[in-house]
């Protein structure tokens, strides 16, 4: 396996995904196989080669700062899993005692 279980758990943590034991083992297996394949690019000489971030680049785009209508607030908030009046409602971030994170 080209990546360890600890590394897999670390990646999941960075990606904000919780995996149980069997999912973790499966992810380690799958990622290892894929990364083994990806490692072939190590053999490619790219010394002095520039980066391609975008294939058909458009130079800086400027426009006048014109005020245009915004999205309808009710329609936007209609998709919120939880709301309070005109706000998105999120769980308490700082607990009174013993934050759970």
């Amino acid at each position: 396996m080209s990546i360890s279980k600890e590394e897999t758990a670390h990646i999941a943590e960075l990606a904000r995904l919780s995996l149980n034991e069997s999912e973790l083992a499966q992810a380690q297996h799958d990622l290892s196989e894929i990364i083994d394949y990806m490692n072939k690019i190590a053999g490619l000489n790219t010394d002095g080669v520039a980066l391609t971030i975008q294939p058909c680049p458009v130079a800086n785009v400027w426009r006048e700062d014109v005020v245009l209508p915004s999205l309808n607030r009710e329609e936007v908030l209609a998709n919120a899993p939880d709301r309070q009046g005109e706000f998105f409602r999120v769980p308490r971030i700082i607990e009174a005692e013993g934050a759970d994170e």
């Binding site: 904000r16 995904l17 919780s18 998709n79 919120a80 899993p81 939880d82 998105f88 999120v90 769980p91 308490r92 971030i93 607990e95 934050a99 759970d100 994170e101």
Partner: peptide
Amino acid sequence: IRYGFRAEDAHGVQAVIR
């Protein structure tokens, strides 16, 4: 948070996201 699926029974912002 703003749209899409939110897990039930998750406590705290980090847990909700994860």
